Amino acid sequence: MTQYLVSMYQPDGIVPPPEVLGPIMEKIGAFNEDLQAAGAWVFGNGLLDPSSATVLKLDGGEILVTDGPYLEGKEHLGGFDILDCPDLDAALVWGRRLAEITGLPIEVRPFAPARG
């Protein structure tokens, strides 16, 4: 089995109203239950707004600490799941389902082999 990072990217800006977001969140809840029942779920969660980020960067031998996202953009990482799947095709089935539920871009990416 290989672990995959399934990342959900969402647009910056206003969060959709409850009548739009509510049904999507219900479907995501069912999706998460199915992941767990299939034994594919390792870990996952949503993230707070990018403005909540703290960036640490080495500069001239010192670590600079700044507020806000590392990269500015029109979209941000909104949440992720780590899945344990037999192969990329199986991970893509889950990713495709999440893309259909959310209507958002979903990135499926394998982890590098464990070291040590």
Rank of each mutant, 00 (worst) to 15 (best):
Y4K: 02
A37E: 05
P86S: 13
G68L: 01
L77E: 01
L98M: 11
K27V: 10
M8K: 00
E33W: 04
D84Y: 09
G73V: 02
S51L: 08
M1F: 11
K74W: 11
E19Q: 07
P110E: 10
A40P: 09
V65N: 04
L92Y: 14
H76P: 00
Y4R: 03
V55R: 13
P105S: 11
A91G: 02
V108P: 01
E62C: 06
A38L: 09
C85A: 14
Y70K: 04
L21E: 06
S51R: 09
L71H: 15
Q36Y: 11
F111Y: 15
L77S: 00
R109F: 05
P18H: 14
V42R: 04
M25C: 08
L92N: 15
V42Q: 03
G46C: 10
I24A: 03
E72C: 09
L88Q: 07
F31S: 05
I24N: 03
Y70P: 02
L83Q: 00
K57I: 00
L48E: 15
E19N: 05
G95T: 01
I106A: 05
A91K: 00
G39V: 11
P69F: 03
G79D: 04
L48N: 15
V15N: 06
P18Q: 13
Q36T: 13
G79S: 07
V55P: 03
R97C: 05
G29E: 12
G22H: 09
G61F: 13
D67G: 02
G78Q: 04
P105I: 06
W41Q: 04
E33F: 09
Q36P: 05
L77H: 06
Y9Q: 10
F80Q: 00
A112E: 06
G46A: 14
M25D: 11
V6E: 02
T102G: 09
G29A: 14
N32I: 05
L83M: 05
E26H: 07
A91F: 00
F80E: 02
D84W: 11
A38N: 07
F80H: 00
T2P: 02
G95K: 01
G68E: 04
R97G: 01
A37G: 01
E33P: 08
D59S: 14
F80V: 00
D87N: 13
F80I: 04
Y9N: 12
Y9R: 12
N32G: 03
G116D: 13
G60S: 06
T54W: 06
G95A: 03
Y9E: 12
G78S: 05
F43A: 15
I28H: 08
R96F: 10
D89Q: 09
L47N: 00
G79V: 03
F31R: 05
G22C: 07
